[in-house]
Simulated scan of single mutants.
Amino acid sequence: MLDGQLGTLAAVILAGGRASRLHGRDKPMIAVGGVPMLTRVVGAAVEAGAAPVVVVGPDRDETPAGVRVVREEPAGGGPVAAAAAGMAAIEPVGVVALLASDLPYMSAPALLVLMDALGNADGALFVDEHGRRQLLCGVWNRTALRGAIDAFGDTGGGSLRRLVRDLDVVEVRWDGEKAPYVDCDTEEDLRRVGL
């Protein structure tokens, strides 16, 4: 972690959506290796020093302890609305991790790689082997992300790509196995990660 940033990380985890490609299953609570994906992502954020950790989505009985749960307005309003709701629920901190809830390989070391890469940029994101930005696997300067949300207008149905298009973003490649940005949108994805 960067010097002077200890204790300045918060996490916003997006855990809503309809999971239509998984036939309506509660995707964040699907266990990979015996552990729900949401629990894995929350655990990685906590281990990296994130406080608070905010989950945006429905309140679940199985939500990991110690997290705050909020809903986007309107419910089901998409990722920008969810990011806005999560950001509104945290105190001003230096850096915010904005993460999907279906990242079975997310880890504290991965978040620390992003923190180290952030420097003075507005954000740091993992990019996949094809150079595609993984918009829900990054860390952001809170002021820059808050400003982008405030300037966005109506967040309902908004695109994350549009939200961050004018921000200064560092693109980070993962060198190890089990890339932390791998997500699980389909049954095939779940099979690939060993479910």
Score class of each variant (00 low, 15 high):
residue 124 A to R: 03
residue 123 G to L: 05
residue 132 R to L: 14
residue 133 R to S: 14
residue 140 W to H: 14
residue 129 E to S: 15
residue 108 A to H: 06
residue 113 V to P: 03
residue 146 R to K: 11
residue 152 F to C: 07
residue 126 F to I: 01
residue 109 P to G: 05
residue 110 A to R: 02
residue 110 A to Y: 01
residue 155 T to Q: 01
residue 142 R to M: 15
residue 144 A to Y: 07
residue 166 D to G: 08
residue 109 P to T: 08
residue 144 A to M: 10
residue 157 G to P: 08
residue 132 R to T: 13
residue 156 G to F: 00
residue 115 M to C: 11
residue 128 D to S: 06
residue 119 G to A: 10
residue 158 G to A: 10
residue 155 T to P: 12
residue 114 L to E: 00
residue 116 D to Y: 00
residue 169 V to L: 14
residue 110 A to G: 09
residue 136 L to C: 08
residue 107 S to T: 10
residue 140 W to F: 15
residue 143 T to F: 10
residue 126 F to L: 04
residue 120 N to C: 07
residue 107 S to A: 11
residue 144 A to T: 09
residue 107 S to I: 00
residue 114 L to H: 04
residue 165 R to D: 13
residue 152 F to P: 01
residue 114 L to R: 02
residue 162 R to D: 15
residue 145 L to Y: 06
residue 122 D to P: 05
residue 140 W to S: 02
residue 124 A to M: 03
residue 153 G to C: 11
residue 145 L to S: 04
residue 154 D to E: 13
residue 108 A to D: 05
residue 107 S to V: 02
residue 111 L to D: 00
residue 168 D to I: 08
residue 151 A to D: 12
residue 124 A to Q: 04
residue 112 L to N: 11
residue 162 R to Y: 13
residue 108 A to M: 09
residue 107 S to L: 00
residue 127 V to W: 03
residue 113 V to G: 02
residue 152 F to V: 08
residue 119 G to S: 08
residue 154 D to T: 11
residue 115 M to H: 02
residue 140 W to I: 05
residue 147 G to Q: 11
residue 110 A to K: 00
residue 149 I to L: 14
residue 170 V to P: 02
residue 144 A to N: 08
residue 150 D to Q: 11
residue 135 L to M: 14
residue 119 G to R: 02
residue 141 N to A: 12
residue 169 V to H: 01
residue 160 L to A: 09
residue 163 L to D: 05
residue 146 R to W: 02
residue 156 G to N: 10
residue 119 G to Y: 03
residue 115 M to S: 06
residue 133 R to M: 15
residue 111 L to E: 02
residue 167 L to N: 05
residue 150 D to H: 11
residue 169 V to A: 07
residue 132 R to Q: 14
residue 120 N to V: 13
residue 161 R to M: 13
residue 142 R to S: 12
residue 163 L to Q: 04
residue 142 R to N: 11
residue 140 W to Q: 01
residue 164 V to S: 09
residue 140 W to K: 05
residue 141 N to F: 01
residue 111 L to S: 01
residue 135 L to E: 10
residue 157 G to W: 08
residue 145 L to G: 03
